[in-house]
Design a protein around this nucleic acid. Structure first.
Lengths: 213, 213
DNA sequence: TCCTGATGGATAGTAGCAGTATCCATTACA
DNA sequence: TGTAATGGATACTGCTACTATCCATCAGGA
């Protein structure tokens, strides 16, 4: 398939495909002559993955690149592939909390992780964001929300169990590469799923409780 | 307090504060002379809210403005305030799915909402995103993840119950304005909380299951 | 064989976002 | 009384994610 057809089938404009090629998100097609290349199904698949991560997952292009590099490096263990994908999508936020608020929040988070027996790299960027967020709740006079941290963690563990089940339910039928891809898609698009479901659930409850008659 | 002190206390640079003033995110201080204005605690509080939404919640500045306008308009019912805040943070993604995939996904989502008895505005932008995401799962050969939609919704309802409890637990002690603000903070920072907790839970499980020995 | 239109590859340009920087005529206050 | 800060206006910057243009080929139909 040539680039025009790839563009037509995927719905991605040709200049954008060229841009993804330049950025190394998409592998080059097989050159059949100095100015003709052939693209296959794997290019279409990759392109769809890119668009899903960018459009739905709101992952920046540079992040998609890091994710793809992790997926493509078969020398990495699945755990390391997942770790890199996580790092690629965890924004390192501006540290905005006061030192005291952060220390308090860090203690609460540490206690949470300890009591749940989670194994977490102390350098995980998500940890910083979590601490900063808990601190923000307090700074914004929303201590009661910070108090629900443990219940939030309960519900989150449910998701994670679901996802592990979803991934392992196919483990016998797929290659490690496909498992890694499933995990990445589940992590990123799963978040979009959760947040939109949450919005809808909230809207529904809000309508029942507070809608003007 | 003058702008320099507001900057020092909040950690936000003076030019940025001026930018927020220009954009109407922050109300002007009270002018005590043509070139001196006085800022109070409500300015500091507002500034902290802005930074939390921007830095932690990843809400674009234009979205923060719409949220603040919703919070400030006391003519709106709580339900409408929440609705506007939701709209301000729901991105309208590029429609990327094929017509058939979208129709299938829409049917699944409709069925989900019907079976749960949710009251959802058919124009809710989150609905479009949800349908597009479910369609993307299928297009990316991850049908098994789409199949978990109902279980995801189960877990999401738990969050929403938690949040309603958190908000109403203070309802007798706060004004409607403060309830609306709590809901907004809970919605947006709550999402940050959920996604970082999810990342940590995944990392922990991934370490236990797949970490190279 | 000739011509039209597409292609790969390179380079340059653009729109939007979130600030930063600069300037100026005041004004606070040591 | 002079130095530093302020409100307000305008201009500039860095970054991201594309778009546009150009060009020397090259495929495929008339």
């Amino acid at each position: 398939m040539r680039i025009a057809e790839l563009s037509r089938v995927s719905g991605v404009p040709v200049p954008t495909i060229k841009y993804y090629l330049r950025e190394g998100l998409l592998p080059a097609g097989e050159l059949t002559s100095p100015n003709q290349a052939d693209y296959g199904d794997q290019h279409l698949h990759r392109l769809r993955l890119i668009r899903a991560l960018v459009d739905l997952g709101q992952v920046p292009v540079a992040g998609v690149k890091r994710i793809i590099e992790a997926l493509d490096s078969d020398s990495l263990s699945l755990h390391d592939q997942i770790g890199r994908a996580h790092r690629a999508i965890t924004p390192q936020p501006q540290l905005t909390a006061s030192t005291e608020a952060r220390a308090e929040a860090a203690a609460q988070v540490d206690e949470l992780i300890r009591s749940r027996g989670w194994t977490v790299d102390p350098d995980a960027p998500a940890l910083t964001t979590l601490i900063e967020t808990v601190a923000a709740f307090r700074t914004l006079d929303q201590d009661q929300l910070a108090g629900f941290l443990d219940s939030y963690a309960d519900a989150v563990e449910k998701f994670t169990e679901l996802e592990v089940a979803a991934v392992t339910s196919r483990a016998d039928r797929t290659t490690p590469d496909q498992i890694a891809e499933s995990v990445v898609i589940g992590t990123i698009l799963g978040e979009t799923l959760i947040s939109t479901l949450r919005l809808l659930a909230q809207e529904s409850i809000s309508a029942k409780r507070w809608k003007a008659p």
